[in-house]
Design a binder for these strands. Sequence first.
DNA 1: TACCTACATATAGAGAGCCTACATGTAGGC
DNA 2: GCCTACATGTAGGCTCTCTATATGTAGGTA
Lengths: 111, 111
Amino acid sequence: MNPDALRGHMDALLLSVLEREPLHGYAIIEALQQRSGGALSVPTGTVYPALRRLERIGHLSSEWATVGGRKRRTYRLTESGRRQLEGERSAWREFTDAIGSVLRPQTRASG
Amino acid sequence: MNPDALRGHMDALLLSVLEREPLHGYAIIEALQQRSGGALSVPTGTVYPALRRLERIGHLSSEWATVGGRKRRTYRLTESGRRQLEGERSAWREFTDAIGSVLRPQTRASG
DNA sequence: TACCTACATATAGAGAGCCTACATGTAGGC
DNA sequence: GCCTACATGTAGGCTCTCTATATGTAGGTA
């Protein structure tokens, strides 16, 4: 997967995996990998800063927990984040429609 | 359209509109707009440098022409560009499959 | 003890490409 | 003279993603 392709879609991915339940960063990375059938291997250096950014702009909230002696920062969607996710989903549809309509092979010059 | 979303897909778009016939930059911009149903308004500051980059790496070739007193640089796909376009198309499918499978709403924790 | 893997978070700096803004010029209508 | 459409181009900025690195716990094993 070309790294640049993810640009601008990271937020949608993170928001989406957090939709049904709060998760911590490490679990989010695993969820992305599982849900994409192994196609998405997002490095920690991408995910952690992105989560902090989403928290800073109010789409996520977080709290620390200790499980099995290890510290976790668990993120959950805010109301703002939930609305944002809706927007991201329709933006995704528009995006794929637009790019898809250009990429579709056209052998005739009929427009 | 969020500018970042285009990241890494510009090459595919340019290669694709040049598939059936050579075009100059300005015509490429119009073609992108028309084919996408108005969704894609790519600024000249994006297209011209991108075309030069694609020429530099061998996916396009160009030649100057004068039409109606105006100078045009017309770009055409090279063999390498044609192969690249094939690759971009399958990469696009993999990309949308991966993101799509994550974005799809999941209400149960069974997945 | 030493070492390894899995789990878990975080930051600094690099790299790349898309965008804004600007510069330049022709053709044609009013 | 002024405007719009046509046509190409560059400089600099911005932002995000990635690589590389640092830190630490828990548990297995030799």
